[in-house]
Amino acid sequence: MLNALSHGRYISGTSLLHRCDPRTKIILALIFSVIVYTVHTPQSLILLLLCSFGIAQRAGRPLRHSLRGLKPIVYLASITAITHLFFGGGPALAESGILSFVSRDGAGRSLLMILRLTVLINGTSLLTVTTTPLTMMDGLQWLMKPLQRFGVPVGEIAMMMSLALRFIPVIVEEAKQLLKNHAEISRDFSNGTMLQRARSCLPLVIPLFAGVVRRGDALATAMDARCYGACAERTRMNPLRFSSVDILCGGVVLAFLSLLMYIDCFLAGGA
């Protein structure tokens, strides 16, 4: 699971998606997320999943990395699926035996739910894989600019978000190191009942948390030392500019998603 968390980190490259403006990518990721929860058929979701794997491959992220990145949602997906399977309502899958407890509608819904989560995680991770934290921060800041009128500290929020993204892999590395150092804890961590495992996590979580606070404190001091917050408005070395790449990427993705919605409506209507 720890390995999986570090797989959303930025991978340098020159693909179309890498060259796209972060604002375009953030907006497309939002539209993508809405579409994932709007489509009704598994076929549409499978098509979206295959496309996101394909794009990830083109952006320099091998398929096995994409698959490993899905590990963290296994538990969540399993719990959701089981809930839908047994409490989905409607007719049962069979008249007798264990399948008589399984809802037919629930089985369909749990399949859709697992597919949705998988597509969502894989698709949206393309944003962090192809965008550096600093440009992501610039993009978020630009998009949230209207909120400044209402006194929202947009710059600070964007900086916090980008730092959080940047330090996830570092914290994962620290957790791995702690697990290595406490081989005993590591064994307990992956064995026993849910409660036992949760308890055995404590000696791991406390030093990890202390480490995060310490690191945060050191980072804040280092940022202070480099004039962070000393100027009302930070400048940019690479000001954000929309280009033909954004028109191309945005156009292709929106056309594809529109077509997908049309096919999905057609398939859902047919079913």
């Binding site: 934290p133 600093l134 940047r166 004039c227 962070y228 009302a232 930070r234 400048t235 940019r236 070395m237």
Partner: peptide
């Protein structure tokens, strides 16, 4: 904390509003 070397080096000058 930045992804690339030049991004990180540019942090200070950008904070100075250059």
């Amino acid at each position: 904390f930045s992804a690339s070397v030049q991004e990180d080096v540019s942090f200070g000058p950008m904070n100075m509003g250059l």
